[in-house]
Design a protein around this nucleic acid. Structure first.
Lengths: 190, 190
DNA sequence: AATTTAAATGAATAATTATTCATTTAAAAG
DNA sequence: CTTTTAAATGAATAATTATTCATTTAAATT
């Protein structure tokens, strides 16, 4: 028998992300995905039951593959600021280098396609970061403020950096990164 | 002759924003807008040439009406920090109280419907804020960093606050607002 | 090399959604 | 009160897009 070309799923995912970035969740059709992925429309339905399933699977895939990068090189044994910087940096780089993915995840939040459960999974991804923030508060290194808002602050600045790098075609020099980190750090530090 | 019910345009706008918030730009149809606005489908086409025109007009309308609120009570003659706080506060409140609008504007940026020119208009809205930031740098009150990134920092945190207030159903107490402003201020201050 | 099995195809069909238009309604003008 | 004009209606049509399926292709097994 003929085996599935497992790489095809990646092609489909990649095509979908490209199209969603270009024209939003509103602007992509199954035909356009097939064309972009270089396969026939019918083939899409071998891999995904329907459009909704494609979107859902991709969403879960994006979450998983993001999560795996957020805590790379993060070692809880290191000093707080080092750890915080590592995670900050990881998220910034991921958002920029996988901007399509960032847009897709964001758009999915306002779409009827995603299950509440999957949104929960996304939130859980940040758990280790929440713990690090708690630790920073205990060590009196950062402000004694609701962890929820401290995380909000950090994520908000990161998301905006990524958007601007892409839309305004800004170079991400180490200097730009360090300046931006400084803004964030001065904000949260005690 | 029968005059147009000018209020109808507002109903259509309101309906569209509601639907876009609920299910994204992808998830609204002309039929659903008509139903939500309590009018017949055909009536939509008296007021708007087609779907694209509706989206475009609403986008421009959102920009204009936002802009009018961002600089309320802002007096350039006042000390820098007062002015900065006023604008910060205005934008936060607008984003929260008109969350549908915020989502719509954001989604439009990733849709094929909006003209580049209209996006430009949105960017120009922040002009007075850019000038205030320049002033803050001259007065050595805030960091001597690229104004572009200082603005990014401010807007990024604001957007995330609004999202979280809505999605996590957080109360916007004066304390929450002041704490969040403090984060932002400590970030940018010299 | 023949057979089997499932992938792949893409035109055809089904479903959805944008748009139109013949008709009705209601306000204004005479 | 009649006429005129344009708004409003919503079912019908057109256009678009999701999904299917009969057929072809190619890998694996015998």
């Amino acid at each position: 028998m003929k085996p599935r070309d497992e790489n095809k799923i990646n092609e489909i995912y990649k095509a979908t992300l490209t199209l969603v970035k270009e024209s939003g969740l509103a602007g992509f059709t199954m035909q356009s995905v097939a064309k972009e992925a270089g396969i026939a429309t019918g083939t899409l339905y071998i891999y995904f039951k329907n459009k909704e399933a494609l979107i859902n699977s991709l969403f879960v895939e994006c979450i998983k593959s993001s999560a795996s990068t957020f805590f790379m090189n993060y070692n809880p044994a290191q000093p707080f600021k080092i750890g915080f910087h590592t995670i900050w940096s990881n998220i910034v780089h991921r958002r920029i280098s996988h901007f399509n993915e960032s847009i897709f995840i964001e758009q999915c939040f306002h779409s009827p396609f995603i299950e509440e459960e999957d949104k929960m999974t996304l939130r859980k991804m940040f758990e280790p970061l929440l713990q690090l923030i708690e630790r920073g508060k205990k060590e009196h290194l950062i402000k004694d403020m609701d962890t929820f808002w401290l995380l909000s602050f950090m994520i908000g600045t990161i998301n905006e950096i990524a958007k601007r790098v892409i839309y305004y075609n800004k170079k991400v020099t180490p200097e730009v990164l360090e300046n931006n980190f400084q803004l964030c750090w001065d904000g949260i530090k005690a």
